[in-house]
Design a protein around this nucleic acid. Sequence first.
DNA 1: AGAACACAATTGAACTCTCAAGTATTCCGG
DNA 2: CCGGAATACTTGAGAGTTCAATTGTGTTCT
Lengths: 168, 168
Amino acid sequence: MADTRWLDEGEQRTWRTFLAAVHLLEGSLDRQLRRDSGLPHAYYQALVALSEAPGGALTMTELAGRLRSSPSRLSHAAARLEEDGLIHRFKRLGDRRTTIAELTPRGLKVLREAAPGHVHEVRRVLFDSLTQEQVDQLRAISEVMLGELDPEGREPRYAGPNGAGIRD
Amino acid sequence: MADTRWLDEGEQRTWRTFLAAVHLLEGSLDRQLRRDSGLPHAYYQALVALSEAPGGALTMTELAGRLRSSPSRLSHAAARLEEDGLIHRFKRLGDRRTTIAELTPRGLKVLREAAPGHVHEVRRVLFDSLTQEQVDQLRAISEVMLGELDPEGREPRYAGPNGAGIRD
DNA sequence: AGAACACAATTGAACTCTCAAGTATTCCGG
DNA sequence: CCGGAATACTTGAGAGTTCAATTGTGTTCT
């Protein structure tokens, strides 16, 4: 790190614009979800992940992997979601260290009601303004980033064409 | 919002990959900065913005605008930065409601020491793996998002080629 | 001048996230 | 089958962010 290669003009513009855009985008999504459903975006994502799992249930560790969340963060989140009755945690017989988180009917209902507004917002702030080409570019770029940041490729799977879950 | 246009397969993949990448990217930057400089990324950005302003000073409102931060957030941040002696707040004579935040020598020193490691990290997680073409695409995409999210176009200026500030 | 309004910034409470530790359970080599 | 290592998860403290409310100051209109 002796000699630093600073960002050139173009990189700098890209970086700052990107940072600003992402910052506003996250704020926008979070505000919409909180306002309309009382859920932070991160918690919404947890419900989505559960809804897509067979039986609406996942191990805490599996769920953390899908969300790329630390165990601790997920634990706190699950505590809150459970308190609100949106999920339910229990242990499987024969395995006393693993905890299963399961979407409750109420959680599914809340998710179903939240989804349309959320998707609408995602379209508004992102897809509505991008060309099809740009969407593809963004995917390619995101995949590169992800490859760098998550080399293990933790849970790169998505619901199939007829995935049972709630979309987002 | 009667009928929801869900994300199609391609959009969904893009969206989720993007979310994951951004989430990890932010975590990575924040961790690096905190570890090496004791500064969260958001606070680092505040110091950068000040360093680029003439005299290393800006109104709280101007600074908030550049960072696209709420007044409240900035106020809390400034309180912490001031306590650490990295900035100094004062009022101009003749205007008793505006507060000026000014980078202290110590703040500038901390920023100078933090910058190389941060830029290195930004390269590592982003620019090193992207082609020049992708960098340009990402800029264009980010500009579109920003246009949607910040129509006013709050402070779209960047330091010129020889900007006096610290790069990031 | 005075009232209403807009603007600049701060405050405090609630909430979420992170990090470091801690508890409990299961796995595995010798 | 025993003891150390790895795994699964939780907990608590500390920090940052958000929202709503508040304070104080400038502006404007009549």
